[in-house]
């Protein structure tokens, strides 16, 4: 299990990185944390002609938490975001989800942006970006910088709306409106495994503590994170109806770990649990 040979470029600033990525095109792979890419290389399931290692690119290891939200640079490790009190204050769902991502040693290397770009349908962070309707900032030599909203970014399993010339330079997780709570619930076979099913929930209350909006994103039960607005059901106080709506929307499949019917059932349970917890937090917010 040794990676195949590849050409190697290690740019030191963004402009050079974009030029390198454009130069190698389809035949290249960007290496950031490597926690998804290197296993594929070691198993020889990927064999890029060139690896563009962005670990030395200046200015990509940023983490800024402002009133609008949290922006995470391409080289910012998951562990740093998880530990950041500032990020947790602005967008608590990040920490809630990151604690469920693999194990500490993986989070020390793995990047938030890398997980989004890898777009594993069972991964937590894409669901977080989706439920918050955050965005990924892409940059390329030809097109400059542009922000792609989550609903357009995830296009299929392990597929995103980024071209071969694009570098994902950051991701943006919007801040929560007032009186809003979040929760991430999942069931995985072992602690730290990819979720059999997972639900990220965001619930906003009105000033009178009636429900204003409730939204969930589901992981592991479709080709991309599936966002479902359950304001109507949850607003009527019927979390079971919300769960039912969500169950109808997902497209789970069988795999070695669980059957589709179980995943469909599980999503309902997790939806109710996540909505309940997010609502409690919204009421406390």
């Amino acid at each position: 299990m040794k990676p195949p040979p590849f050409g190697y470029r290690a740019p030191r600033e963004v402009g050079q990185a974009l030029a390198d990525i454009a130069a190698v095109g389809e035949d290249g792979k960007v290496l950031a944390g490597g926690q998804s890419l290197i296993p594929l290389l070691n198993m020889r399931l990927a064999a890029p002609g060139t690896v563009v290692d962005i670990n030395r690119v200046a200015g990509l290891d940023t983490l800024t938490a402002g009133p609008d939200g949290v922006r995470v640079g391409a080289l910012t490790r998951q562990a740093r975001v998880e530990r950041s009190e500032e990020a947790a204050a602005v967008q608590p769902l990040l920490r809630q989800a990151l604690r469920l991502v693999a194990h500490p040693a993986i989070r020390n290397r793995g990047t938030v942006v890398g997980s989004l770009v890898h777009a594993d349908p069972a991964a937590e962070l894409p669901a977080v970006l989706a439920v918050l309707d955050g965005s990924v900032r892409l940059a390329s030599v030809a097109d400059g910088e542009r922000d792609v909203p989550a609903r357009e970014f995830f296009t299929g399993p392990l597929e995103v709306a980024a071209g071969p010339d694009d570098l994902a330079v950051s991701a943006f997780f919007p801040a929560l409106p007032p009186r809003t709570g979040t929760a991430f619930h999942e069931v995985s076979r072992r602690h730290g495994d990819f979720a059999l099913a997972g639900v990220a929930a965001v619930v906003t209350m009105r000033a009178d503590l009636g429900l204003e909006e409730a939204r969930v994103a589901c992981a592991g039960v479709g080709p991309v994170p599936i966002v479902v607005d359950v304001t109507a059901e949850a607003g009527a106080g019927d979390r079971a109806a919300a769960a039912h709506t969500v169950r109808e929307r997902i497209e789970p499949e069988d795999d070695v770990h669980a059957g589709a019917a179980y995943r469909r059932h599980l999503i309902g349970v997790l939806t109710e649990r996540a909505l309940a917890e997010a609502s409690r937090r919204a009421a406390d917010a």
Partner: peptide
């Protein structure tokens, strides 16, 4: 016996 198996048995 996995949770998915137990779910199926319950059903």
């Amino acid at each position: 016996l996995s949770p998915s198996d137990l779910f199926r048995l319950r059903e």
